[in-house]
Design a protein around this nucleic acid. Structure first.
Lengths: 102, 102
DNA sequence: TGGACGGTTCGACAACTATCGAACTATCAA
DNA sequence: TTGATAGTTCGATAGTTGTCGAACCGTCCA
């Protein structure tokens, strides 16, 4: 069970975090993670291609919003709940209350 | 005293709002407006050119975050506090608590 | 009437973004 | 070993973004 590098959220510019949230596909991922807690990449149902989804995961990861855990051939992703809450208090509450359209 | 068109925030995609917040210069504007309430464009001290600032104002306006009021030759901008609070409850609290780096 | 002032708009440009399919890597199962 | 499965990475492409200076538009005032 490996876990890879995660950037330091305390030093992450808030603009970078907002940028990561500025795409409907990425918001959809976040919303799913708010319910499911942990998720394999393939479980994120979407119209987009594998490579595009992989790109979005990378953006979220580099912004410090999600982390990845590899177990065999499956990559599980999850939210960095505590660290995000510390960097941007109230963000999760806001995201949970979010109404469509994304 | 004119006031120009403002988009309907209820129909505004949250991703568009997050996008508007994804630039340090625009965050700086928002932070200033949180303190000053109303501001002429020129009062936003910055290193950026007039035209660049005007561009950022436009992005914020089109995302529904600020509104403009013209009085003579001066344009005053201000936050659409109530409507934003309704579309994204808690966003202002979050923005006020924001720590550097932007 | 003619500047000066406060902003916006336009055109240009380099940098970046979302998206895809194809090629690749690593793991598991038969 | 061979093949299937889960994701990542690469290269390409069309579209978007931030930035600037120059030109422009209203408003005010001398």
């Amino acid at each position: 069970m490996k876990k890879d590098y995660s950037p330091n959220l305390k030093k992450m510019p808030v603009s970078a975090i907002f940028y990561a949230l500025s795409d409907p596909a990425r918001l959809e991922i976040i919303l799913t993670l708010l319910e499911e807690k942990e998720l394999s990449c393939g479980q994120c149902k979407t119209e987009l291609s594998k490579s595009t989804m992989s790109h979005h995961f990378k953006v979220l990861r580099e912004a410090g919003l999600i982390q990845r855990r590899e177990e065999g051939k499956v990559h599980f992703i999850s939210l960095r709940v505590d660290e995000i809450e510390e960097r941007m208090p109230g963000l999760f509450k806001l995201l949970k209350a979010m109404k469509k359209p994304l």
